[in-house]
Computed example of a mutant assay.
Amino acid sequence: MLPSQEKIFTLPQLLTKVGEWQAQGQKVVFTNGCFDIVHIGHVDYLERARLLGDKLVVGLNTDQSVSRIKGPSRPLQDEMSRIRVMASFWFVDAVVLFDQETPLELIKAVQPDILVKGDDYTLENIVGHDVVLAKGGTVKTIPLVKGYSTSQVVAKILGDQHS
């Protein structure tokens, strides 16, 4: 098994691993997304998220979840491709798939110490903020790299730069 594959977890495996980390006093950071076409904005965001704690867990939307959220033409890359790419980053410690439109159930299960989203969200709009705050954790936003989004990349590929 390749090192990146060792970072891909089922939910039961992840809960065991997070429990071990937290028992050792390590702060677990959680974020989520589709990460369909990974670009510099994703890399910057994830690396900054990891620096907020000791371990970074990424919840990754399944293919069906992405299609429900973004439409039938998405994702462009299947979940196994997306999860391996996420797991290959040194700053990502664990990746788990989730099939819902939001990561609320996953956040309730994982009970991260720090919940992170991009600064295009307000605290009140971050799914699971109440769960994390109720257990004494923190919720943070990270500045996004301006001018980068998967939708913009797709538009550029399609030659429609006015989207």
Rank of each mutant, 00 (worst) to 15 (best):
H129D: 02
G118H: 03
T10W: 07
G136I: 01
D44W: 10
D54R: 05
G136S: 06
A23K: 09
F98Y: 15
S67H: 10
F9C: 01
D160Q: 15
V28L: 07
D54F: 08
A155R: 14
V110C: 05
L46K: 06
S73E: 13
K135H: 15
G41N: 09
R50T: 03
E79Y: 05
V38Y: 10
S81P: 00
M80A: 07
Q5N: 14
V57G: 10
D113E: 04
R84P: 02
I8K: 09
K70N: 08
L51Y: 10
Q111R: 15
G33Q: 05
V154S: 03
I107W: 08
G25A: 07
L158Y: 13
G118T: 03
S81D: 13
A87T: 09
H39V: 08
L56W: 12
K55Q: 13
S151N: 14
V66F: 13
P143R: 11
R82K: 13
S4K: 14
G159M: 09
F91S: 12
I37E: 08
Q100C: 01
F91P: 04
E79C: 02
L46Y: 08
I107N: 07
N32E: 05
V66M: 12
D36T: 09
Q111F: 00
I142H: 09
H129V: 03
L106K: 12
E6K: 15
D54G: 13
K70F: 05
W90R: 14
G137E: 10
G137Y: 07
